[in-house]
Design a binder for these strands. Sequence first.
DNA 1: TTGGTTTTGATCGTTTTTGATCGTTTTTGA
DNA 2: TCAAAAACGATCAAAAACGATCAAAACCAA
Lengths: 259, 259
Amino acid sequence: MILEVRADLAPERRERMRNLIRKAGVARVEDLKSDLKVSVATVRRDLEALEEEGRIRRVHGGAVSMESRLEEEVFDDKANLALKEKRLIAEEAFKLIGTGDSIYLDGGSTVLELARLLAGRTDLTVVTNSLRAAAELAESGPRVILTGGELRRLSQTMVGPLTRVLLGQVRLDKAFMGTMGLSIDDGLTTTDPNEAFTKSLVQEHARQVILLADARKAGKISFARVSDLESVDILISDKNFPAKTARALRKRGLKVRLA
Amino acid sequence: MILEVRADLAPERRERMRNLIRKAGVARVEDLKSDLKVSVATVRRDLEALEEEGRIRRVHGGAVSMESRLEEEVFDDKANLALKEKRLIAEEAFKLIGTGDSIYLDGGSTVLELARLLAGRTDLTVVTNSLRAAAELAESGPRVILTGGELRRLSQTMVGPLTRVLLGQVRLDKAFMGTMGLSIDDGLTTTDPNEAFTKSLVQEHARQVILLADARKAGKISFARVSDLESVDILISDKNFPAKTARALRKRGLKVRLA
DNA sequence: TTGGTTTTGATCGTTTTTGATCGTTTTTGA
DNA sequence: TCAAAAACGATCAAAAACGATCAAAACCAA
């Protein structure tokens, strides 16, 4: 029997296996076999060990991770709806960030795309109320400060009056905000009053407020009012944004950029 | 037998070995052999010595560093082997929770097991600084309030002075705490000073402090001091907990339960 | 130098890990 | 519902790693 030179230590290999399963959520035995370059027998033994540790759960054909990830974007249609536009908007927003900036990341899928771009920026301080954004930066990257507050399940954000106290303690150079609705007459609106309260609080604190909103948000009005349009400094949207609305916004002093 | 001129003294070689393992995180015996130009027997003897010093942990085929990953459970499968005990401890702790209680969940894998049991309890309010506990309860279950603060990557918890403000605003019936070390003389200790600060703050605020610690933690002393043993009301551990230590704790007024 | 101690490397029987085989169980799809 | 296919677990043999032991080499003090 010819055994190959062992490439790595058993704990090291299990760690890699663990990460593979955690990142993908699930993994098949055959995939792990070829990824880790070991036999199925070894994969099974490792899976057994990881299950014993409670990190995964074995299922026929492979294993699923027990280490819950905050983000389940895969099944989230809303996030994928205008993904391309959101990426472009995020990239445009990224350009505004300077070295050493202290920035705020709001909840919402567009801002989440921006968070993904920040994984390598160790020079920044990121304040956020979004668990998903935090999860995105949890491995490495900028200094992350979470606002605290009550967890709102739908948006996976921390909201409410408890947030206020912490926000008073930090400096925010730039706040990158999302929104549900953007209307000339009604300003920024969102679904939940607590969420709205937190957003408005942030906008008061930040030196510069940058709104990331794809074109579909234009003209929409949601339930809870966040703020006037005047409290926004820069709006970043995509090419589909209605020109008429853009003009009206510029007239009110907002800078509008269409990525 | 021909031995080469010894290139370096034994302590110097061990120092180099230590650094090699620390830098890579892991190292194979064969690699160390060729790197240090000594026989495998010597490598093994050195590894044995370094393990005795607690700097590394030997595994089949090589060794894993214990230094940069400071005894935390990142690479440490041995610590997580106690999953069964942790589950039992968590179940015991679960019994202490009354209807409508407002409880605090600390970081750490044992407390995380408790969090998993709370998914159905919509009557509770859970305050936590642990992102993993929050993720566990993110789908459904109790009202969740996060403390906020700076994200500590290794433990995935929010720590530091910013936490203080929010803790002052909530009532905590019971705080379920984890720990790295539990010693009669040195009390509760953990690796990170910020983490220790947050823990002690919580313990001051909570009406009742319940410590969840598997037997492994008994007698261990870590870097940063959290509090005296006296600030703990109830300790829940497993059957392997040293009887002598349990007696000493009871003498000091703690209730000790072994699941 | 010399004699004694410590350190090192080689040898060898034992243990651990790994991969292949094979009968059994589970899943899939007609 | 039944049969083929896939996945599984148990078992065994090969290979690598291990620990104990012993002798040679290096070291050290007189």
